[in-house]
């Protein structure tokens, strides 16, 4: 978690200040995690991957649930933030979208330096982008070590099945090999698995570790029932995204 994470109210990325938006964060994440209840924890997530794999699309889909067909290369590093409500807890995700172009590569290590989560994205229709995962993961490990970061590997453009060059099994194998905690195939165009990805990431964060163990220990039915009121609460809060929806809801194909 970034050391700069601090006193930001939970306003949405769309800048709609709701009553709930007044919930202030604590000075730093370390303290935030110690304090219970209302304080807001912030987590820095960096998106890595070759040019044109869909890093920005992934963020756009998550943030605004939209998809733009027109490709526009990211210049430098982009920043977006979003408040998430999950299992009766509110966290704020700071999303750092890096440029895939070679000329901006030198900037990226400085952003990996204080990131809690690194999402390495590849394009399932481009073998080369898959091969470069090793290099990205190595960069992350160089900066953050093996333990201090949650590694995610995401195979994007899942909807282009005819052009697939990398199988799901290959992706899973590589994730296992490189020690990535999360592997997932997504389609930002179809809106497939994007929410699930962020839900999984959130669940992997230290804030949810205790809660997760409780959920695992409980019977599945009870856990499912427990998520229902959380969803209800989230619906009541404006400007807060609820990601406690069930996985099945995400499988509903193309939204474009």
């Amino acid at each position: 978690m970034s050391a700069d994470a601090g006193t930001t109210p939970t306003a949405t990325a769309t800048q709609a200040p709701a009553a709930a938006a007044a919930v202030p964060a604590t000075q730093a994440t370390s303290t935030a995690t110690k304090k219970t209840g209302k304080s807001l924890s912030k987590y820095k997530i960096v998106f890595l991957g070759e040019q044109g794999v869909g890093k920005t699309s992934l963020i756009t889909r998550f943030m605004y649930d939209t998809f733009d067909d027109h490709y526009q290369a990211t210049i430098g590093i982009d920043f977006l933030s979003k408040t998430m409500y999950l299992d009766d807890k509110t966290i704020r995700l700071q999303l750092w979208d890096t440029a895939g172009q070679e000329r901006f590569r030198s900037l990226i290590p400085s952003y990996i330096r204080d990131s809690r989560v690194a999402i390495v994205v590849y394009d399932i229709t481009k073998r080369k982008s898959f091969d470069f995962i090793d290099k990205w993961i190595e960069d992350v490990k160089n900066e953050r070590g093996e333990e201090n970061v949650i590694l995610c590997i995401v195979g994007n453009k899942n909807d282009l099945t005819d052009e697939r060059q990398v199988t799901t099994e290959e992706g899973q194998e590589k994730a296992k090999l490189l020690g990535a905690k999360i592997f997932m195939e997504t389609s930002t165009k179809a809106g497939y698995n994007v929410k699930n990805l962020f839900k999984k990431i959130a669940k992997s964060l230290p804030e949810f570790q205790d809660a997760n163990s409780n959920i695992i220990n409980e019977a599945s039915g009870a856990a499912a029932a427990g998520s229902a009121p959380a969803a209800g609460n989230a619906a009541g809060k404006t400007g807060v995204i609820d990601i406690s929806t069930k996985d099945e809801q995400e499988q509903s194909g193309c939204q474009c």
Binding site: S2, D4, G6, K44, Q94, L107, P109, S110
Partner: peptide, 13 residues
């Protein structure tokens, strides 16, 4: 790069 990136993060926050 680190200095400027940290300033960038601080400004964004």
């Amino acid at each position: 790069s680190d200095v400027l990136a940290s300033v960038h993060a601080l400004i964004a926050n």
